[in-house]
């Protein structure tokens, strides 16, 4: 098991390195002059050249890449062109806010999807209804759903704050948006797994033992569904941490996604690269955690590894 995790860790590191290289290269193909972004009103070419020199933008690409990578190994993500702050200092607090949103979103999707899935597995009529709801939820783009929720609960009913910012009241709608968008996938997998389990011999054994339906569902069946759900939730957590751009933009949630979005609009290369690399690390780390969780939840997976 430890060896399998090590192997995955190594693969993960390679992937992160690859993303870092890719991000660096992509960013240098981006048209637009960062010096202009920093000093939009500067008239003289000398001022702009001076800024470029300060940022080492006048050096060959290879040299820039080497220094960028060297700094990266020390945890230094560089300085933001626009905000004149270390990128790491910009990302740090936003990572916490994005983390809170990601966690709340994953919780919401597991709860909503899990409930729908169990209901669908047990009742034919509910299954048809859940199928329809699933289809609609799959069809609606994240930002449309976010705006609809904002319109209904924020503007019409006044139940949720409409202004941006991070806080316990502000998190409800974006988390619900993530939850509703993610729910169909969980509903599908839970419904399939529960249905399979309900027709299994071991559930027959449990029924034969005189256990109540609710008990069998909670202690036996859901215990079996846990491992695929945990795997999916772990991966979702990673991908949400790497930037729930759309939701953060709609709700003006001050996280990584909004940071990356603004940085891209401002041609703030170091920030874009920083968010992409942090995102890649999050994806890799949480995929590893998801594997670990799966092994804890399923004794059979432990031996396979």
């Amino acid at each position: 098991m430890a060896r399998a995790m090590m192997r995955r860790l190594v693969f993960g590191l390679i992937a992160v390195t690859g993303v870092a290289v890719l991000a660096f290269l992509l960013e240098f193909v981006v048209p637009g002059d960062p010096a202009r972004a920093i000093a939009p009103r500067a008239q003289s070419a000398a001022v702009l050249a001076n800024i470029r020199a300060q940022l080492h933008l006048n050096q060959p690409l290879v040299v820039q890449f080497a220094s960028y990578f060297g700094n990266l190994l020390h945890g230094d993500l560089g300085m933001s062109y626009v905000q004149r702050q270390p990128v790491a200092a910009l990302i740090g607090p936003r990572l916490a806010d994005t983390g809170a949103l990601a966690l709340a979103g994953v919780l919401a999707e597991v709860l909503i999807g899990g409930t729908l899935g169990v209901l669908a597995a047990r009742h034919d009529r509910v299954r048809a209804a859940v199928g329809a709801v699933n289809l609609v939820l799959l069809a609606v783009p994240v930002f449309v759903l976010g705006l609809v929720l904002l319109l209904v609960f924020g503007y019409q009913l006044g139940l949720a704050p409409v202004a941006g910012g991070a806080g316990p009241a502000q998190i409800v709608l974006p988390a619900l948006t993530l939850g509703l968008i993610g729910a169909p996938w969980y509903a599908q997998i839970v419904a399939d797994q529960v249905q399979e389990a309900l027709a299994s011999n071991w559930v027959r054994t449990a029924v034969g033992k005189g256990l109540r339906d609710g008990y069998i569902l909670r202690r036996h069946v859901l215990r079996n569904v846990l491992s695929p759900v945990l795997t999916m939730a772990g991966m979702d957590l990673g991908s949400y941490l790497s930037g729930v751009v759309t939701v953060e933009v709609v709700f003006v949630w001050p996280g990584i996604g909004l940071l990356a979005y603004n940085a891209l609009q401002n041609l703030d290369r170091p920030v874009v690269m920083g968010t992409v690399i942090v995102g890649a690390v999050a994806v890799v780390a949480f995929n590893l955690l998801a594997d670990l969780a799966r092994m804890l939840a399923d004794p059979r997976a432990r031996e396979e590894a």
Binding site: G18, S239, V245, L264, V283
Partner: peptide, 18 residues
């Protein structure tokens, strides 16, 4: 595998920038 693991929106934004 790399393509499947990419965060779509962020990757889309980066490509859009060029």
């Amino acid at each position: 595998d790399v393509g499947l693991a990419l965060p779509y929106t962020l990757a889309g934004l980066v490509i859009a920038a060029i």
